[in-house]
Design a binder for these strands. Structure first.
Lengths: 122, 122
DNA sequence: AACAACTATATCGTCTACTGATATATCACA
DNA sequence: TGTGATATATCAGTAGACGATATAGTTGTT
């Protein structure tokens, strides 16, 4: 019954960082856990390396809260790996991740953080 | 001496969200704790309300890690409130917050999260 | 000068979330 | 058939976030 957060998208923002990473990694695709790990690493240029502990507990929470859902009958044309469990974002998930992205973007813009760096450190 | 994280800016990224909020709130100014709370609320349009528990424990950590420093001899021209303790970012702090902002910005850009929203919910 | 309301810092216990280690099983390939 | 990569799952330990509470200085009013 953890549907309480799902009433108002604003109530779920700020999103925990790991949840945000997972949602961004899934994007518009249908991805399985292991692919999400790799995608997080890729998207963040290796800065974020998400282990299985963080990944699967986050997936569980996102499922519980209705931000993602498992797509059952999916068939991979090239290879059929029975272990894989594929997930896609729900409409709610897209709403919330967009809201979080907007919040972060707004914060970065207001701060002018991009202009503070005292040059590249060598 | 938790200076271990301070060797390489990349090692301190990702920054804990509260730490990122505090650094952005301080910005190029010299601010005291209570003003940081208000500034975080303002910057995030009320979406993030940071209580004293999060604030002061975060300030302590940022001091320990050398991302901010206390400015001692500061005199406020209009009012002199002896309780206030003012903080400013260090060069290291500016480097790290800029690095984190860059990382988040890059992630948002790559994901196209801004275009996912199924319109404003009413 | 006494009082109330606001400002400001500090700490405590609790809970959520993150992390690394470990386990187990399946798949690809030789 | 075996070994290395892929894939999911769970657990214990810890860091970080949060709300409540405490304490005290400051401002303004009468």
């Amino acid at each position: 019954m953890p549907q309480s957060r799902t009433q108002d998208p604003r109530a779920a923002v700020p999103l925990p960082p790991a949840a945000f990473h997972v949602l961004l990694a899934i994007g518009a695709e249908e991805r399985h856990g292991y692919a999400i790990m790799a995608e997080v690493k890729r998207i963040t240029d290796g800065a974020v390396r998400m282990g299985p502990g963080t990944l699967y507990s986050t997936i569980k929470r996102l499922l519980d809260h209705g931000l993602i859902e498992e797509c059952g009958e999916r068939v991979d044309p090239l290879r059929t790996d029975q272990r894989r469990r594929y997930y896609r974002m729900t409409t709610l998930g897209r709403t919330i991740v967009a809201s979080e992205a907007k919040r972060l973007q707004s914060m970065i813009n207001k701060s002018g953080a991009g202009t503070w760096a005292p040059g590249e450190q060598h």
